[in-house]
């Protein structure tokens, strides 16, 4: 917990940066991929998207966006757990949330390396 307290400014900056990314991009992405794509209204062509995602710009962008998203959400999750669970939930909530963020980061890196 001491380490987490020392890193609070960093965690908050990642949370903040992640928040702006999310606000800018996530609604569009979810609408495009999840809803319009899922319903077949938007032609999500494999070739084009693969090229886009695996390009020199695409990969770092995806890495930044997804990792920012996960850390943002996990940091916020930590506060949610604390608010609902009270002081006793402070340390377990923080451990759980940031562990989840680390796992998600690892998964993102793995996926992008393969891409």
């Amino acid at each position: 917990m001491k380490l987490i307290h020392r890193l609070e400014p960093l965690l908050w900056m990642i949370f903040g940066a992640g928040g702006y990314q999310l606000a800018l991009l996530l609604p569009g992405l979810v609408l495009g991929v999840g809803l319009l794509g899922g319903l077949g209204f938007l032609p999500l062509e494999y070739e084009r998207l693969h090229a886009l995602a695996s390009s020199a710009v695409g990969k770092p962008f995806l890495a930044g966006f997804l990792i920012g998203l996960f850390w943002h959400c996990c940091h916020h999750l930590r506060h949610l757990i604390l608010d609902l669970g009270g002081e006793r939930a402070a340390a377990p909530g923080a451990y759980f949330s940031y562990a989840l963020a680390i796992v998600a980061t690892a998964a993102t890196v793995q996926v992008l390396v393969v891409l």
């Binding site: 943002h72 996990c74 999750l77 996926v111 393969v114």
Partner: peptide, 22 residues
């Protein structure tokens, strides 16, 4: 605060999509 849970799920969904592209 709950948005974090759903957006996390969304992030996982997108990650799965990127994995599928790969």
């Amino acid at each position: 605060a709950l948005t974090s849970v759903f957006m996390f799920v969304g992030g996982v969904g997108l990650l799965l999509g990127v994995r599928a592209l790969g």
